[in-house]
Design a protein around this nucleic acid. Structure first.
Lengths: 277, 277
DNA sequence: AATAGTCTTCCACACAATGAAACTAAATTT
DNA sequence: AAATTTAGTTTCATTGTGTGGAAGACTATT
């Protein structure tokens, strides 16, 4: 049972605009300060599209210079961080890690054929998203007949607040958590200027509906429908979506695919239960 | 006040057959035990192609159960590890990390057009490898006219002891380090049963040559030539290779491309110096 | 040359990380 | 089904590791 209390009081009362990453959800691990900090640094490096200086990193993560330096050195020893001159960036060791995930993750392996069937059957693009902290990421995708114009590569961080696949992942969350998610989305420029909780809630699907729908929401010209993947053990953290350019398909027809989607999601979670791991 | 006891007695003189990962090179960071251990666990998870139990991980990393559990919990909070039932595996957070590397790494960005030109010009497959610890990994590849039959995805861990691109990365290393590398290759089943240092050294190119060559070495039916990428700051840790099926191309013609390769490598490192980061 | 900024090393202190042991849960055997 | 083993989790006292201040090297910049 995780405590809700942020174990890290460096987050003083004043809201730092450059919010330090922090653990994934609100869930705080029992302790392990140095490890958490290292992962904060690692995450911070990912979020910047250019190499970072030591002092930048230290500031944006709220860690002192000597400590940040020590953390970076260890990360570098493991290849997770590279350094050129005084500039730090993500290192090549992330590639084998990602490869291992893509090749071995049981959920992903089970999902791929299901997405494929879904795409073949509906002629739409089928995607699998996974919640990661206050965002979601694209984990797998199979294109349909009308491939989406925009490029959305695996591992892209997307908001939970926009798009059917995002909204369905947070449909049942309590207000407090929604608030965090909303703030994160603004911080990360995934949402326009600050918007309030009610706006977000009005967008979310009826909890009873069991699916979410979006048109021109996260990306313009695109609509999608999504359902959650009921996960055997843990809380729901995955969703499956069908997506299409708005002009290629009547809205009602997309809604009509929801049962199909639901079946796919159920099939996936059943498959998963059977897996011996 | 140093105690005499090595802070990690699992690295005793006796060689444990199930060698725990350990930091990338021989270079040991100043300390940060908990972080190092967490990264050992993370690496261990990657190396197994199926989910691992807590006790398995603890044993193979030489860490006590309670500590391993705590490490895993934090890694899980950050999405780097997933858990189903009592099984742990690599988590989806590695995807955005890898994406960040592939999209932003200056070396990689500089290398891609160079590999492309190399491939176009020579009609061979051009690849960029990076040394990671006691192995190398494929970081970028552009296929030539005769695409290699076998699939070699980005991030694949390959031995330093076999293949031109591996050998050139270790051509100048002292015996002691070569020994470690040789042992690691055997441990990881990248080399046949234990083989001695002299065998390895006989394979390595003349340090003066400045390039390495291989035929049927790491993969049968494949030959390649490789040069190192002189790195502005750090030690040489990257190599560029040209590869082709043996039957598609006369061996001497491949050797004739070495100057071309050399030019590409130099161009890459020059480009890199200019980069402002 | 002087100044400001950034990075790195050193060190004493405090608390975070640790393992032993107790405990619970889940397999496995009898 | 009870008994036994094995695996996982929690608790807690101890200590050694991670920590930040301060001082020292660098490097820009003026």
């Amino acid at each position: 049972m995780r405590t809700e209390l942020p174990y890290n009081e460096r987050m003083s009362t004043v809201d730092d605009p450059t919010a330090p990453p922090g653990p994934v959800a609100g869930k705080t691990a029992t302790t392990m300060r140095s490890l958490s900090r290292a992962l904060d640094v690692f995450e911070q490096l990912q979020r910047s599209d250019r190499p970072q200086r030591l002092s930048e990193l230290a500031r944006s993560c709220g860690i002192t210079l000597p400590t940040t330096l020590r953390l970076l050195r260890v990360l570098q020893d493991y290849g997770l961080v590279s350094q050129t001159e005084k500039n730090y960036r993500i290192g090549p060791a992330v590639l084998p890690a990602a490869r291992s995930f893509l090749e071995n993750d049981p959920l992903l392996l089970a999902a791929r054929p299901i997405l494929l069937q879904l795409a073949t059957q509906t002629h739409l693009t089928a995607s699998l998203y996974s919640r990661l902290g206050l965002e979601r990421i694209l984990v797998a995708r199979v294109d349909g007949d009308n491939p989406l114009r925009y490029d959305l590569p695996l591992g892209k961080r997307l908001p939970l607040t926009r798009g059917a696949a995002g909204k369905i992942l947070i449909a049942d969350l309590p207000d407090e958590e929604l608030q965090h998610i909303a703030e994160a989305a603004v911080d990360r420029r995934q949402e326009e200027t600050s918007f309030d909780l009610e706006v977000l809630k009005s967008r979310l699907p009826d909890p009873e509906a069991g699916y979410a729908f979006s048109v021109d929401e996260r990306a313009s010209g695109v609509m999608s429908a999504a359902v959650a993947v009921p996960h055997p053990t843990s809380a729901v953290t995955e969703s499956i979506a069908l997506t299409t350019p708005v002009e290629a398909y009547p809205q009602e027809d997309l809604r009509a695919q929801v049962p199909e989607l639901r079946r796919a999601a159920r099939r996936l979670s059943e498959l998963l239960e059977g897996v011996v791991y």
